[in-house]
Design a protein around this nucleic acid. Structure first.
Length: 273
DNA sequence: ATGCCGCCAGTTTGGCGA
């Protein structure tokens, strides 16, 4: 299908920190922002228990992929949803200390929406530098790179959005001195983002709304949101054709306010097509 | 006031998030 309609397409990403806990806010936000495509992360529920009815009532088709707990991703689209692909090429799993077998986790789902190939990704956290989860994070990002390389076609706009759990630069955290020896800011993690750019993707940086910063995540603890102690870790990577036609990109920090928010804000880009 | 952690599975407390 070519583009479903001419004009602007709005594509967004949001780590909702439990889609079931966030149903009222998700429905509210879809009505306010009216994205054509929304990538979700951290569903914390299963594919079957995703709130399909509530979202479909607003005109969205859903490709959900989750097994519960600390994973789960989805693509919502009101401009068509085709060729759904769950998981990455040669995707590694994670082996907890108390488990015998490594288990693959639902952290990536792709679909074609109105002629744009869209992936929603939830990159592993990493926990601590040197931890097995950190090595898993780096290996998972290699699989993401390989999947992107396989999927890129000259004639197809492509974008991957989600919670990358990496701050691209020192400016993307409130104070780099507080991150000495921590995950999310290390050179090996940032090199994996560079590998995506080397494939031809570009970071589409959003504008902030209240402050010069464009953070997308603020820890629930310590009043971090109110002090603007945040991080930009939810990223939008797009092919040059798309990135060149972005008319606006922003962090909807209003969605981080109020009762029972996610700890992440939605990130939005408008693309002229 | 945006207003000081929340979610899930289940040892209804503890692990995880980042």
């Amino acid at each position: 299908m070519p583009c479903a309609r001419l004009g602007t397409v709005r594509i967004a990403t949001w780590n909702v920190n439990s889609v079931l806990a966030r149903v009222p806010r998700l429905v509210e936000w879809l009505g306010i922002a009216e994205p054509d495509v929304l990538c979700l992360q951290e569903l914390k529920t299963t594919t079957e228990l995703f709130p399909h009815a509530e979202v479909e009532a607003l005109g969205y088709e859903v490709a959900a992929y989750g097994t519960g707990r600390w994973n789960g991703v989805a693509v919502l689209s009101r401009v068509g949803l085709e060729d759904v692909r769950r998981g990455l090429l040669n995707e590694p799993g994670f082996q907890p200390d108390d488990a015998m077998l490594e288990a693959q986790e639902p952290r990536a789902v792709g679909a074609t929406c109105g002629g744009v190939r869209v992936w929603s990704v939830y990159v592993p956290n990493g926990r601590e530098v040197g931890h097995a989860h950190y090595e898993y994070k780096l290996a998972w990002l290699d699989a993401l790179r390989d999947t992107v390389a396989e999927e890129l076609r000259p004639d197809r706009p492509f974008t991957v959005l989600g919670d990358f759990n990496i701050a691209p630069t020192d400016e993307d955290v409130w104070d780099i001195k507080d991150f000495d020896g921590m995950t999310h800011v290390t050179e090996p993690e940032r090199a994996k983002l560079a590998a995506l750019r080397e494939l031809g993707l570009r970071d589409v940086p959003p504008r902030g709304m209240k402050y010069p910063t464009n953070y997308t995540y603020w820890d629930y603890r310590g009043g971090n949101f109110h002090k603007n102690l945040g991080m930009r870790i939810d990223l939008m990577y797009a092919t040059a054709e798309l990135a060149d036609n972005v008319t606006d990109a922003y962090v909807d920090r209003d969605a981080r306010k109020g009762k029972l928010p996610s700890d992440h804000a939605p990130v939005v880009m408008d693309i002229n097509r």
